[in-house]
Amino acid sequence: MIEYAIYFAFGCFSLGLLMNLWQIVFASGVGDRVLALDTMVINMIALLVLFGLMAGTEMFFEAAMIIAMLGFVSTVAYARFMLRGNIIE
């Protein structure tokens, strides 16, 4: 039962990643693209945790943690660049 639920969640988050890619390519502005990239990072974290759940190993939590931190920093850097035209003044 858990196995099929994991497959279902895999399908949902993968479809979500494809939708984010669509939004990145066809969005109307820069802010939407940054938002889609942020959502992509969050979906990727969910996929990594699901993969660790399926493989039965705890090795992927560190990867998920690092991706979460890098995603936050990159989104803040993008937003800062949109706001000020520079990242570190």
Binding site: G11, F13, L35, T39
Partner: peptide
């Protein structure tokens, strides 16, 4: 929990479009 989270993730990404 897995099914709820999958549906929520899908809805979030669909709402973005």
């Amino acid at each position: 929990f897995l099914i709820i989270s999958g549906v929520f993730g899908l809805v979030g990404s669909y709402g973005l479009i």
